[in-house]
Amino acid sequence: GPVLLQTYRSIGDYQKNSKYELSVGTGDILEVVEKSENGWWFCQGDGKRGWLPAAYLEPMDGPDEIEEQEPNYEGEVYTVVKGYESVQEDELSLGEGDTVEVIHKLLDGWWVIRRDEVTGYFPSMYLQKAGAKP
């Protein structure tokens, strides 16, 4: 049968940085085709298709549609596969090869992680589950 795609509304203006992304304005309606764990969602709307940051999208079906995982305060061990320098004060700066504990996997691709008792946000794109093959 037909695949029913979830409908989302853009909550901000987003200007694309590559041809594979979409530019949207606040209030634009989009269908989400694929949700990547790194926070980029493949969307279609108004005859266009491309990637959008999940952080700019809210579900039309209402906020009771819970997809977000619960935090895991014990932490799940991940390895940093690409270094990142914090831009905002609630982010962590880490180098390639560092080991961290993932506390909360947020859909927007910015996960809450802990290292040396310090907690902050880090791009999930630069993390890999410890022991996993790339």
Partner: peptide
């Protein structure tokens, strides 16, 4: 391929949503 997500981390949530999360 177009079906590969961008190589850079997506931007953080716009300010309005960050307030809602807090």
């Amino acid at each position: 391929s177009i079906h590969q997500p961008p190589m850079n981390p997506p931007p953080r949530p716009p300010a309005e949503q960050r307030r809602k999360q807090a």
